[in-house]
């Protein structure tokens, strides 16, 4: 997919970082992002860099800002300050086409957010047809491929409420993948699932990671964080409080807050 042009006025000048995409510049670079809802400061200067093909897991208590961070990256919330660079482009620049930038990323939500009035296949093809102007036949072919990929090719004609939670979430993942996003944002995608359905979704995410997808994942699934993540970030009070490899952050956290959080979510000992 080609990167959308920025402002028409930018002329021949190349965008910072757009030339050295294969170099060391991170795919996603969040710098000093702040976001408050009224007086409530949710993000208080978050820095986060994600290299291509890496999986970064965000952990932290409810209200620590994980969801808000993902939503600001996907431009579903406007930042109060700071910048977000996607492949070197400052996507927080209000002069850019936000719809085109959103189309470069995929987002999966905690409660699936499938469109209930559309069949599974139409859920998956909607963006292809409207945003990417793919002809119907080609869009459906691609959608069927993606449904095959998530193991739901036989449910293409079903409506979302005829599927189990795990199946719905897999459709949502297929929907977010259909236009080959550069970055996949996953917001507690297993939190609304029954325990026995969590595995099918996490397995799928592990496969995507193995195929090289770049992912930022907010989750409470410490097993997933341990086995799939390249980096774990602990968010606390609107900041990245501690970051490191899963072994380091989950195994031997340095910060007392991190230790306390891990103690709380794993009960007495560490799972």
């Amino acid at each position: 997919m080609t990167a959308p042009s920025s402002t028409p006025a930018s002329g021949p000048a190349t965008l910072p970082g757009s030339a050295d995409r294969s170099g060391d510049a991170p795919l996603l670079d969040v710098r000093g992002v702040r976001k408050a809802f009224g007086d409530h400061v949710v993000l208080d200067g978050v820095d986060l860099a994600v290299d291509a093909h890496r999986c970064v897991v965000l952990i932290g208590a409810s209200g620590s800002g994980k969801s808000t961070l993902l939503r600001t990256v996907d431009l579903l919330e406007e930042v109060d300050d700071g910048v977000i660079l996607l492949e070197g482009d400052d996507i927080t620049d209000p002069r850019r086409d936000a719809d085109a930038d959103r189309a470069r990323m995929g987002m999966v939500f905690q409660s699936f957010n499938l469109f209930p009035h559309m069949r599974v296949l139409d859920n998956v093809t909607l963006a292809s047809r409207l945003v990417h102007r793919v002809p119907r036949r080609a869009a459906q072919e691609r959608a069927r491929e993606m449904l095959e990929r998530v193991g739901l090719a036989d449910r293409a004609g079903a409506f979302p409420d005829e599927l189990s939670g795990g199946q719905q979430q897999r459709v949502a993942i297929a929907r977010s993948l259909v236009h080959s996003p550069r970055l996949l944002l996953l917001d507690e995608v297993t939190s609304a699932l029954d325990p026995e359905l969590v595995g099918e979704v996490l397995d799928l995410l592990g496969e995507l990671k193995a195929e090289g997808m770049t992912m930022v994942v907010a989750t409470h699934e410490m097993g997933f964080a341990r086995h799939v993540a390249d980096e774990v970030c602990f968010l606390h009070a609107g900041r990245v409080h501690e970051r490191g490899t899963p072994e380091q952050v989950l195994g031997s956290p340095r910060q007392p807050r991190t230790q306390e959080f891990l103690r709380r979510i794993t009960g007495a000992g560490r799972a």
């Binding site: 957010n113 469109f115 009035h117 909607l126 409207l130 945003v131 949502a172």
Partner: peptide, 28 residues
């Protein structure tokens, strides 16, 4: 609002979201 968020996250514009996601559900 989560329906709108899902549509916009796919890159649909405000108008496309209204036409294909919000209105069909609203009218029903």
């Amino acid at each position: 609002p989560s329906q709108v968020a899902a549509a916009r996250s796919l890159g649909l514009s405000r108008g496309q979201t209204m036409r294909t996601v919000v209105l069909p559900q609203a009218v029903r």
